[in-house]
Amino acid sequence: MPSHGPFALPDHVQGSLAPLNKRLVVNRRGSTVWDVRTPAGRLAVKLGYPSRTHHWTALAPAREATILRQLIPGEDVPFGEWEQGTWSAQPWRDGVSLFDLWEPGRHSSHPSAPKLEEALSCAAALASLHEAGWAHGDVQPNHFIIAPTGTSLIDVALARGGEVPEIYDFQYRGCLVHYEAPEISQSILQTGTAVPTREADVYAMGASWFISATGWRHVDYPDDAERKDQRQAIVDKPHRPINVPGALGKLIEHMMSRNPDDRPTSKAICQQLRNAL
């Protein structure tokens, strides 16, 4: 039977990290995440376990750790196994999520255009990943962490582009559907799996900007719709009208083209935003 969590840090993980204090951040979809302060610094410690619908979530922390070691050579990302799955510890990324940062604009009676500088910081983080040869596979507003020192694109457990030990690898079965590109949804409906691409990441970033600015998902479907029906709506229906004011609205429209080949690259998006500033 799948477990539900949240789970405490296993004894051998505590012994390895020597936490001074810890705070539960989130427990959902097969992942318990702790904010842990240690003598060596502040860490995000993830415990993966099988969820109600997926067993691959148990492997995700270790898979992410192997990817981070490739993306940031020299960064200490310890990981290992525990009785429910795998665990990892990575440096804490401080800041505010894109969705929270743009919240005031969603509730204003006179919405203003989102700040292009903030959009550019997100695009630059994604472009950096793409230029390193990876596709993220799970781009969403809460994975852009924005701080005065820059923006971090977190949660790379589903990324594709480098070598992952077979023992920790698993097939890609999509991401949070609210940001899924039509071709990804269609592949999952037809075969049960898909291949993350940079083009789908660009679509997801456009959908992330759209929902963060307006509060609306990119495609209209009932809140209680089954995941399969959500994906079918993404395949069958056009995205909502892009009503984000300013230069960002036209850019989002381009990013969310149904044809992946028509979408701009993340690098081109950065250049367009710099030109608009």
Rank of each mutant, 00 (worst) to 15 (best):
P2W: 02
H4D: 12
G5F: 04
A8E: 13
P10K: 08
D11N: 09
H12F: 13
H12E: 14
S16G: 12
A18D: 15
R23I: 13
V26G: 07
V26S: 14
P39F: 01
P50A: 09
R52N: 11
W56L: 10
W56K: 07
A58M: 09
L59Y: 03
A60Q: 14
Q70G: 09
I72V: 15
E75L: 14
E75W: 13
V77P: 04
F79L: 01
Q84I: 00
G85T: 01
T86R: 05
W87Q: 00
P91L: 05
P91N: 04
W92T: 02
S97L: 03
L101T: 08
P104L: 06
S108F: 08
S109Q: 13
S109P: 15
H110W: 11
S112W: 13
L116N: 01
E117G: 07
S121I: 04
S128Y: 05
W134G: 01
P141L: 07
I145H: 05
P148Y: 09
T149E: 14
T149L: 15
G150A: 14
G150L: 15
L153K: 02
D155R: 04
V156R: 04
L158R: 12
L158W: 06
A159R: 00
G162S: 04
Q171H: 14
R173F: 12
R173G: 10
V177E: 04
H178Q: 14
H178K: 09
Q186L: 13
Q186D: 11
I188T: 05
Q190C: 10
Q190E: 14
A194H: 06
R198L: 09
V202F: 03
M205N: 07
G215C: 08
R217N: 14
D224C: 08
A225V: 10
E226W: 12
E226H: 14
R227W: 15
R227Y: 10
Q230H: 07
Q230W: 06
R231C: 06
I234M: 00
V235F: 03
D236I: 00
P241M: 08
G246F: 08
K250T: 09
H254C: 12
N259A: 11
P260G: 06
D262Y: 11
R263G: 06
S266A: 15
R274Y: 08
R274D: 09
